[in-house]
Write a protein that binds this DNA or RNA. Structure first.
Lengths: 206, 206, 206, 206
DNA sequence: AATGAATGAGAGTTCATTCAT
DNA sequence: AATGAATGAACTCTCATTCAT
């Protein structure tokens, strides 16, 4: 009797997103989801067959949103630098905005092949989007590059989780750093010999 | 009888490592741990006060081992390139050898402040080790560099988890790639202008 | 459906009263309570948060009933003798009717401050009721008198517990005896000198 | 290899008395008893077959001590008044000295017929001692008198348990009160008509 | 469609007792 | 005689799921 997909369907997903995200799958009770959604416990089961399926649905919605926004951002970029920047910014800001919900990805149920398969598929799609950008730059090994880049960003994301005072500006700065590192390497092109200088120092010592 | 630390203590840790690692904290039953350790359920509680404490002990042992091995490997390296290679190799191989036990880190109990604190400390120690290497190279922002490098490796690790056919040789190749990317950047020093070439291409299209 | 307070709530209290009373707190299993109440184990916890809280509720209901009945009886009495009789009769008959449930008071969980506090409060209320009667008679030390009287009755109650053949008529007889003793003392007013006669006898023997 | 009955036998009984008395039967762990007795857990079972049997032994020793002391006190008395006083003093002081150990009698295991039988026997022996005193005074119903007297004392004992500030002098005062009440009744011989005065007042009101 | 009382399998944990040393 | 590591039955309580209303 509702809106586009049914008001309650959405209310349950919202409530579940909030709770799975902040408490994790196992600590979240179906009764809490129902309460937060403002409906009765039994009603949840009219919309989702089980707790695991609800978790799947929440995850799916969140991942799709993530990929959709990324696609929109990339469409608006023209240079490689812009694109890398957009990817980094999206990745970090997305999690910055959701810093209370990180457990959605950390505390999922095991042994659910369907969920594992979906997560794999999501990772691949994300990777494809990033890889396409790498390919456009003509770099070798675009796949590994894409994975590495995402990895850098994911790690910086840890700070968002663990450091209470981390600001949105900090997140931006990190995004730029990641893009720069990616393009120039750690040492910048001008002093790459440092790699061997260090080497020689040690040899002299020996 | 009994070894240095007690044969059973070790047997329980081993069994718990196996189960927590492959099934996760919540799906692992204390009775299973006991059974796999070849002892009675009650005996587990003679060595570990609770399931959470057992999990902590397993985590601690694994993390300490990880850091110890890394330290040993770094001692044996002289150049920056060697060290980066050692870090990458260790990170990936460590998880390659433990690919069945990734859930030790993914499915931990929430809301356990002691565990959270320990994990943060571990991350910091790992980061310090890597950062020291970065500092020796004279690079600016060694902290961000260290985090980025670890992030790259962590991501490559995902392949180990998700792709069944991933071989040890593949892991080695990835380790070298990560070290190379880190030093030279994605595009290599020789054709950095690609970043802007891409830009111009798009402008011409427009 | 469901009665005034909920049919099941009452059924659980009844079952728990029966079991706590006859087996004691520690020997009573929540599963037994559920079985006797004709419901599932989990259902008990919908009505009572824990075993201890259920015990408290059973105790409270029984104590309130006891005090209420006493109050009703005393309202109907006019002379002191009648009132003492009523108290004695109530005390003994109450336990006579509940002789299977004496363990409600003997086998309660320790270290539960709330329960201890409640029992103290109950004792005080009972004592107040009896003390008011004593005060009306103008006797000195009404509090000590009240406690002593209750003590007498409590002890006679022991016979109810321990002697299988103890009849309701026996209980009545004891009640009258207690009231008489209370008013006249052990020896009756006519031969109080017996206290000293005994003394002299012994002196003569010496 | 020890003294009269074995040093350890006594040490266990002492430890068990302390713990059963202060914590109750169910809350006392055999390991605690062993620890307090300064021996190993298994050793307790060399002296006592089970926890219940240990409890029995503790109870038996305490009861025998109680009765023995009473007998000694009564031997030294000549008048009835002295004897009643001695009984009251013994009863209250005994528990005053043991106020930490009241749970020995309140939290015993159920369903142990041997223990129940022993307690009954103890009660009877105590009763016999007191009854003999009553009989010497030539009073009718010496048994009921004895029980009533013990009852009074038992109740006054409650104050010792529940009122923190209760002093030894208070205990003495109560003992004298109980003896006096017993001999003279609540109202004393001089104004027994109060019983009926109250009656008449109410009749006039009507 | 919506409810929420009822279910019951299943978990972690305790502790009296045993027995190889 | 003494030990204490090991046992495992038995307990309380939780919570995803069902179904009569």
């Amino acid at each position: 009797m509702g809106g586009t997909v049914s008001h309650k369907h959405t209310a349950i997903l919202d409530a579940a997103y909030e709770l799975f995200g902040s408490e994790g799958f196992y600590e979240t009770k179906m009764s809490e989801v129902a309460e937060r959604a403002g409906i009765a416990k039994g009603t949840v089961y009219l919309y989702f067959k089980s707790k695991e399926e609800l978790f799947m649905a929440v995850t799916r919605r969140d991942c799709e949103d993530f990929l959709q926004r990324l696609e929109n951002l990339l469409q608006a970029c023209s240079t490689l630098a812009d694109k890398l920047s957009a990817i980094a910014g999206h990745h970090l800001l997305y999690y910055y905005e959701r810093k209370q919900h990180t457990k959605l990805f950390f505390r999922a149920p095991n042994n659910n092949p369907e969920l594992m398969a979906y997560m794999t598929r999501f990772m691949e799609e994300y990777m494809q989007s990033v890889m396409k950008v790498m390919q456009e730059s003509g770099a070798a090994e675009p796949e590994l590059l894409a994975e590495s880049y995402i990895g850098m960003l994911d790690r910086l994301k840890m700070d968002i989780m663990l450091r209470p005072g981390f600001s949105e500006a900090d997140a931006h700065k990190r995004a730029e750093f990641a893009a720069g590192l990616f393009i120039h390497g750690a040492l910048g092109s001008q002093n790459e010999q440092a790699v061997h200088t260090l080497h020689e120092d040690h040899q002299e010592e020996a």
